[in-house]
Write a protein that binds this DNA or RNA. Structure first.
Lengths: 230, 230
DNA sequence: TCTTGTTAGATTGTCGACAATCTGCTTGTC
DNA sequence: GACAAGCAGATTGTCGACAATCTAACAAGA
């Protein structure tokens, strides 16, 4: 028996592809918060019937990035400053827990993966690709969750991440300035490689990556809750 | 303008009712882990077409209590000892966080609600109603999440709770013995009323409510992963 | 002018039928 | 007897059409 293991083949249902398409559109900000999703139009654009589209939308509703009102429509969730704050404070707690679980499981492969993902962020930063920068940064932070060996925790973090990614994408879109060029993840990566777990946890809980304060200020500034139609 | 405020009217879609029906069937153990859900049969039994049923099933898949394999079927999730362990350890961390957030927000209404829910558990215990006992116990523990004023945290806990409820229901079903008559929540309630937050957090992290160890042993005992057909 | 009732249009919710895929059995061949 | 090919049968995925509901505009009456 060779040590070759195959990855599961791709999802072959339209539904799965629709989910991926919609999720990407939302997380990159192409679909704005509060915006209504017209089933007929989207189905026509995708050359798909409404059945798989509706099933896909149900999934995204449960995933927390869409919201649905019976007989009224399905909308991209609104982003409030409190939501962002809530998500972030929970994220800190989960980070601390994930570090605790991962700590004993770190090995050479972990360290390699850490470097690899860190490098991806730096590359995206050099390329001035803001969308990719957000993606890679979240993937970097996701490493400890993938290694923590707790499926429920991982799942929880992924749900949280969807929202955070959406928030950051919106923010980046609003101010289309060049990306900060300094390496804000330097300390984080160094502490994860080190021997002091408490220090790593403290850093996760106290340090603010990714311009969180600026993001919050932005969210407060557009606290207007405009639900624009299609 | 009077101070009367109306609660939102009930969901009127078939989909929502189907979701509620299916969820209850799963959480009470009427549908066993690994069991396949035959769309045609269920749709006929409910006198409903497959469209809303399938949408409901999509929601429950995302909710984490069903799992779906394209062109093969949708199944009730399997319960492994590791899943239970993972869910429980995360639950402890979240409890600690919820207590921290709730602590400053406690007031008379909180204390009243606490007593009310505690009483409900004791009543269910006196009635020897195991299903209701599980429900009320989880509602008691949910109080701190409802008061924590963090929507993301609350949502996360509710997802977690679904699974825990399912695990406990299975356990109770397996050993249909009388319920433990002692009041295992006594200390928890007392600490939540008190002044020592650290003590309450420590209790949440260290004390094992609800016969967790017994539950784990049960889960390990049926680690057989039998996926029986319809 | 303000309120109330009506109506037309658009959109969501649901249905029944068809297409794609999987499973197990049968058949034929070696 | 072992094995591959191929054929039902059942089940899931998708489609197009119809029913239920909402929204907004307009008319009628106080």
């Amino acid at each position: 028996m060779g040590k070759l293991d195959f990855s599961p083949i791709a999802d072959t249902t339209r539904r799965a592809e629709i989910v991926a398409l919609l999720r990407r559109a939302i997380l990159t900000g192409q679909l704005e918060p509060g915006q209504k999703l017209n089933e007929l139009r989207i189905a026509e654009q995708m050359r798909v019937s409404r059945a798989p589209l509706r099933e896909a939308m149900r999934e995204l509703v449960q995933e927390g990035i869409l919201t649905s009102i019976p007989y009224a429509g399905t909308f991209v969730i609104d982003v409030t400053a409190k939501d962002i704050d809530d998500a972030y404070s929970l994220n800190k707690v989960l980070d601390e827990f994930a570090i605790e679980l991962t700590w004993k499981l770190r090995d050479q492969r972990f360290l390699d993966d850490l470097d690899r993902r860190h490098e991806a962020v730096k590359q995206a930063t050099r390329d001035l690709d803001t969308t990719r920068q957000i993606e890679t940064a979240l993937q970097l932070h996701g490493l400890i969750y993938e290694w923590a060996d707790n499926s429920v925790l991982l799942e929880t973090w992924q749900r949280l991440t969807s929202r955070l990614q959406m928030y950051f994408a919106l923010h980046q879109r609003a101010r289309n300035e060049p990306v900060p060029s300094e390496d804000v993840h330097e300390t984080y990566v160094r502490l994860l490689k080190g021997a002091d777990m408490r220090a790593a946890q403290r850093h996760a809980r106290e340090h603010i990556d990714l311009d969180f304060e600026e993001l919050l200020a932005y969210a407060r500034s557009l606290e207007k809750r405009s639900s624009k139609g299609a």
